[in-house]
Computed example of a mutant assay.
Amino acid sequence: MSERTPAPRPVRLGLLGCADIARRRTLPTILRESSAELVVIAARERAKARMFADEFGGEAVKGYQALLDRLDVDAVYIPLPAGLHHKWIVRALYAGKHVLVEKPLTTRYADTVEVVELARSRGLTLMENLTFLRHGLHAAVQRLVDAGEIGELRMVDGAFGFPPLDPRDIRYRPDLGGGALLDVGVYPLSAARLFLGSDLEVVAATLKEDPERGVDVAGNALLCTPDGRTAQIAFGFEHSYRCEYTLWGSQGRIFVDRAYTPPPTWRPVIRLERQHERRELILPPEDQFANTLRAFVRAVGASERPEQSADTAAICVQARLVDQIRDRARLLRDHELSRGHR
């Protein structure tokens, strides 16, 4: 009788920071996936870690470094505020841990390149948890474009915005990497890059700043490829809800709603319009958080990481474009706008 090959040991994960996104989406996903095991939860206060451990399992520890010093942790998930990502990615990589980190990977292009190179040099997986990119919806859209359903793609138009947040929300804190560009602008920006390629450049941009908080609360950007295809993106914290993108081609257009944050039970709809035709393609539901976790586990277990190389190259392009939006933005402040209307 042939012996069965034993199942691979689950990747032993540690949670570095008890954030809301971890509680709502990522930790429930980990509990459902047999390929990963939550073993340690770290917070600045042990009571907060204990609260999460009571709900999701694992051991509660005080302090992030205490988690990184443990030998029973293969990888860490970092949902800390964006302004803390660079510091704790570096520390985790030097501790020999693979890293899954919430978007954005870091707040600056130079920091992103640094941690990507550090992960590569140490043979470790570094992945950004921008989960919408791993939903099959967008691959289905790409297949329609490749099949010529809208002719030649000319333009991508994307938007992600929602009403104002709780005034105490960390996304209003500049010291923690807050602001609409890093929190929601990265979604339509990433969609533009996904469909138009990595040679996009920012032509013009605006950022509206809240002078009391010192962070951007809204913005727009115009981007262009060398061959003249364009993207327009809009984002912010002071809008009615929009979460969409449109691909406009020479013979038609494709529209996708709920593009970036579909619930796992959502059946995505692709609307295709041509001159004398309108049709809808309804896709099966998918859990993009589960897809990302599985991709991360595969990368951790792989001896070579070609998928990760493609991912990190795309992350670096994204970080470059974010820096370009900041550099080229006309900065609009609420008090200046109100004075102009008097």
Results as ranks from 00 to 15, higher is better:
P81T: 10
P81C: 08
P81N: 11
A82V: 04
H85P: 09
H86V: 04
K87M: 10
K87R: 14
K87T: 15
K87Y: 09
W88K: 09
V90I: 07
A92G: 00
A92V: 00
Y94N: 10
A95T: 08
G96Y: 03
G96V: 01
K97I: 00
H98M: 00
H98I: 00
V99W: 02
L100Y: 09
L100A: 12
V101M: 03
E102Q: 14
K103G: 07
P104Y: 11
T106M: 03
R108W: 07
Y109S: 11
D111N: 11
D111H: 11
T112G: 10
E114W: 10
E114R: 13
V115I: 02
L118I: 02
S121I: 04
S121L: 13
R122C: 02
G123M: 01
T125K: 10
M127K: 11
M127D: 03
E128D: 06
N129C: 09
L130V: 04
T131D: 13
T131L: 06
T131A: 11
H135L: 05
G136S: 14
G136W: 09
L137Y: 15
L137T: 15
L137S: 13
L137W: 11
L137D: 08
L137K: 14
L137V: 15
L144W: 03
V145K: 08
V145I: 13
V145N: 08
D146L: 08
A147T: 05
I150Q: 00
G151T: 06
E152G: 11
E152Q: 12
E152H: 14
L153A: 05
L153S: 06
G158F: 06
A159H: 12
G161D: 11
F162K: 13
P164V: 04
P164G: 08
P164S: 10
P167T: 10
P167N: 11
P167C: 06
I170Y: 08
R171K: 08
Y172M: 02
P174A: 02
P174E: 01
D175N: 13
G177R: 01
G178C: 01
G179P: 01
L181V: 07
L182C: 05
V184R: 11
G185D: 00
V186Y: 09
L189S: 05
S190H: 15
A191E: 01
A192L: 00
L194R: 13
L194G: 00
L196G: 07
S198I: 02
S198D: 13
L200P: 07
E201D: 15
E201S: 12
V202N: 05
V203W: 15
V203T: 14
A204I: 02
K208D: 14
D210H: 09
P211F: 12
E212K: 09
R213T: 00
